[in-house]
């Protein structure tokens, strides 16, 4: 019975969505291999750690199946979070954690040049050291795309949810960090009320008072526009747009690598154009990350 009922309603929806998805599927599967292969430029580096551990996947839980000893050359192909896909001269492929690659040297070392470690431990020759000019060492590999927790990252994104007055709210936000303390924020929130649904676009500034603290407090200030969509036209005026402003404060802590937890309070003032502007308190919790 249920199958018959659903079959009645499927064709109308399916004709639109299936067509769209088929186009997407063919576009992605057809074009992506070309894009992927075009970007697959390898970077050769020389191993200076005692050995590299090649995992079968980009995670500490994947087993180590190969090791590459010091002095060998590997090619770096991709990065996924903290892990790099490398391939050695014997066509062995695996994922290596970032901390093992920070000491590798770019390129291939000169044949006669000992590695820095060898130079440090080898006995000195008896000829005059002042006339000897050792060859400059190869540069160390560095990936600007890899962001440490204490690096100067610039972009943040976050998702929070909570209560806006007595209603549920979801907020998605992005921030550009102007310095360690100050950021410019752009946020969109969705309030699902009993009588009115609201979609809000907000622009503001956030100041982290002590960004170095483990639990960092911040204050925020901003303005925005609210699109109101009444559920019933009998009691509410029609769809309309109004202005709003807010002040807020919150707490943020680094919970895991590049991953932060947030609790936020904001006091909104809705400028309705009448003498009685409305104040709404909003409490949210959520997470944010930088990239």
């Amino acid at each position: 019975m249920a199958r018959t009922a659903s079959a009645d309603t499927l064709p109308r929806c399916a004709s639109q969505w299936v067509r769209g998805w088929l186009v997407a599927v063919f576009a992605v599967t057809g074009l992506w291999p070309l894009v992927s292969s075009a970007r697959d430029a390898a970077t050769p580096v020389t191993v200076t750690d005692p050995f590299l551990e090649l995992h079968t996947g980009p995670g500490r839980g994947y087993p180590v199946t190969q090791v590459v000893p010091r002095g060998e050359i590997v090619e770096i192909h991709k990065r996924h979070t903290d892990w790099y896909l490398v391939r050695d001269d014997h066509r062995h492929e695996g994922w290596v954690h970032h901390r093992q690659l920070v000491n590798t040297l770019l390129g291939t070392p000169p044949a006669a040049a000992p590695s820095p470690t060898d130079r440090a431990t080898a006995p000195a020759r008896s000829d005059s050291p002042t006339t000897e000019q050792p060859p400059p060492p190869a540069p160390t590999f560095s990936d600007p795309g890899y962001l440490d927790d204490d690096s100067e990252h610039r972009l943040e994104a976050g998702i929070t949810t909570g209560r806006n007055g007595a209603e549920n709210v979801i907020r998605i936000s992005g921030a550009y960090l102007l310095n360690d303390s100050l950021s410019a924020d752009l946020a969109f929130s969705h309030v699902m009320g009993r009588s009115v649904n609201k979609a809000t676009a907000l622009f503001g500034l956030t100041h982290h008072i002590h960004p170095e603290w483990r639990v960092s407090p911040y204050v925020s200030l901003g303005v925005g526009a609210v699109y109101l969509r009444p559920k019933t036209r009998a009691l509410e005026p029609g769809e309309r747009i109004s202005q709003t402003g807010y002040v807020g404060l919150g707490l943020q802590t680094l919970f895991a690598r590049r991953f932060m937890l947030r609790a936020d309070y904001r006091s909104f003032m809705a400028f309705s154009g009448h003498s009685d502007n409305q104040e709404v308190n909003e409490w949210t919790v959520g997470f944010a990350f930088f990239f």
């Binding site: 430029a41 991709k78 990065r79 040297l105 540069p139 160390t140 590999f141 600007p144």
Partner: peptide, 10 residues
């Protein structure tokens, strides 16, 4: 040792 940034495809 010099440090040279190489943008790896992420």
């Amino acid at each position: 040792t010099a440090v040279r940034p190489i943008q790896i495809d992420s």
